[in-house]
Design a binder for these strands. Structure first.
Length: 538
RNA sequence: GAGAUCAUAGCUCAGUCGGCAGAGCGUCUGAUUGUGGAUCAGAAGGUCGCGGGUUCGAGCCCCGCUGGUCUCCCCA
């Protein structure tokens, strides 16, 4: 007989009972919350027409869309998120506005799996369609904080920004339209790489990303002492091998090797100090490399150093407070930025009115978000430990619904349920014992003659709403008790020949290590008494 | 999509110079035909990820592939 390997497709996971219970706990909490805020459930298919999804997310996201289909139906795709399907539903149905809907369902992305990154994962979305005002944005943000609070998060950082403010920032920089995405991407890294890191990123915009990426990796190996001079030269030669224009390889490689000669290979004794020194050396080496490359590429594709200085100057203002908005307004002096700032302060007012504590969120105009469809308010929550990225993200997307023929403003968010579970696990936010037992009572089966009595007892307990497992063979009683202990049940109920003859049931209290016989008619109450005592006793 | 690194029993891993495939935990059986997670005794469990190469001989060396993990990219 040929067997099939029990393997999973890449990036896919099974959720065994313990993991599934944790996910359900998160999902149940969010669903209850969403309903408390008056949101209605919606379900859409996993499979959409490719045309529904394509062209909505931007080029980076688009290549991650799972294409599916059967031969002549190959124009199908698995949904990438729950927002675009919502837009399709809105336009394809007659729904009164505002439409407040929630949807908790898996989505698929063809990513390279990593910690906290799966190809199939569950999103919990809440969105409001048809409400143009900032009250709607604040409503969504209130749910975000309430959700994170309800799940037990404490020091999270919910960052708030506005796309129109960002547009003003772009104009302030005064660079060509084509350079803007690179600029946004660079400043988005502020939290991760710091001010000098952003400088490097800004000065890298317009340079070939793949070349820089491979250079960074080669330099990392070199300064950490993982590569000798020959290896470094080989890595770098490979990195510049495909670079455009062709002259880069000839002129850039020697210059870069030269520049790098100043930086030491290998670290000291103390691992942490060595790591810090290596990071510093790598940054300096990359700065030298970028200097060298900027001389080789056309100036009109690069961000001028004067602009970089101006932007970095501006980024230093970032203090997360409300006063920041006024400061930004005067500095940017731009009509669209002014709209973004006004919207942000309206949102803040509404959050205050809703009683959301000010320490739950902060303004961060260096927070960008990658998806193309956002138009106004944007926000996301990032956790630092574990370093898993964002656990929640969302914003306003006033132009997306028009793409399906029925324009309407909309705002919403999605929680990354699987990342929430991962983070909560790492932070110990799940109660240790909660829900671990699948059943409170195990009904033992003594022999074939008494089995029907056991089956009947289990049925009675279940009718009373008590979680009951019927043992399914007549093993030795010791085995059945050991099994019940493994299952974390609280009670074993036994009807053997003696009990059957006497019309009784032996109820063994596993916690108290004691047992007593009760009348068969009083068995349910007897179990309740033990479970009740256990529960109140802690 | 780029790079690094790893892959030995169900799990965690050891395996020296290229020379008989190992340990702990778990599982199963028994000690024990009506009662506690222990203990003791025993057993099962392997294509050393897959395919090729070098060699008298490969878990170990070389090449390719697949998969996991990590760093980028991007995101939840």
């Amino acid at each position: 007989m040929s067997t099939t390997e029990p393997r999973l497709a890449r990036g896919m996971r099974d959720l065994l009972p313990d993991a599934m219970r944790r996910r359900q706990r998160v999902v149940d909490t969010l669903r209850r919350l969403f309903e408390t805020y008056g949101f209605e459930p919606l379900e859409t298919p996993a499979v959409e027409l490719s045309t529904t999804l394509l062209g909505k997310y931007g080029p980076d996201a688009e290549r991650l869309i799972y294409r599916a289909g059967l031969g002549d139906e190959a124009d199908l795709a698995l949904r990438y998120d729950l927002t675009v399907p919502l837009a399709r539903v809105w336009s394809g149905n007659d729904i009164p506005r505002p439409f407040r809907r929630y949807q908790i369902a898996p989505v698929w992305r063809g990513e390279r799996p990593q910690r906290g990154r799966y190809r199939e994962f569950v999103q919990a979305d809440v969105d409001i369609v048809g409400a143009p005002g900032m009250l709607a944005d604040a409503e969504i943000l209130t749910i975000v904080t309430a959700g994170l609070d309800a799940l037990g998060f404490t020091g999270y950082r919910l960052k708030l920004n506005n796309r129109r403010l960002l547009n003003g920032l772009g104009r302030y920089a005064g660079v060509p339209e084509a350079v803007l995405p690179g600029l946004y991407r660079a400043i988005d890294k502020l939290d991760k790489v710091g001010l000098e890191g952003v400088r490097l990123e800004l000065r890298s915009v317009g340079l070939p990303g793949e070349l820089l990426n491979r250079q960074r990796q080669a330099v990392g190996r070199w300064v950490r002492g993982q590569a000798d001079r020959d290896r470094l030269a080989r890595d770098l030669a490979a990195a510049v091998g495909d670079a455009e224009p062709a002259g880069v390889a000839e002129r850039g490689l020697p210059a870069f090797l030269d520049a790098l000669a100043d930086f030491p290979n290998g670290g000291g004794d103390d691992a942490r100090a060595a790591e810090a020194a290596a990071a510093e050396a790598a940054a300096a080496a990359m700065t030298a490399s970028v200097d060298c490359l900027r001389g080789l590429y056309p100036v009109d594709r690069l961000i001028p150093d004067a602009v970089t200085d101006r932007l970095l100057d501006l980024l230093q203002l970032r203090d997360g407070s409300r006063a920041l908005l006024a400061a930004l307004g005067t500095r940017l002096d731009d009509a669209e930025a002014a709209v973004g700032i006004a919207q942000l302060s309206e949102v803040l007012d509404a959050l205050d009115a809703a009683g959301v504590p000010a320490d739950r969120y902060e303004i961060d105009f260096a927070m960008v978000r990658g998806l193309d469809y956002y138009t106004g308010t944007i926000f996301e929550t990032v956790v630092e430990t574990p370093p898993i990225g964002s656990i929640q993200g969302g914003g306003r997307y006033d132009n997306l619904l028009a793409r399906f023929g029925k324009p309407a403003p909309a705002v919403g968010t999605s929680f990354g349920v699987d990342r929430l579970v991962d983070v909560m696990e790492a932070l110990g936010l799940f109660p240790a014992e909660a829900g671990a037992a699948a059943a409170d009572v195990v009904v033992a089966v003594f022999d074939a003659v008494t089995a029907p009595g056991a089956v009947g007892l289990a049925a009675d307990l279940r009718r009373a709403g008590i979680r009951t497992e019927l043992y399914l063979s007549a093993d030795r009683l010791g085995d059945q008790i050991r099994y019940a202990l493994e299952r974390r049940a609280s009670v074993v109920a036994v009807i053997g020949p003696d009990e059957a003859a006497a019309g009784t049931v032996v109820l063994r209290d596993l916690g108290a290590r004691s047992q007593a016989a009760v009348d068969r008619a009083g068995a349910v109450d007897g179990v309740r008494a033990i479970l009740g005592a256990r529960r109140s006793g802690g």
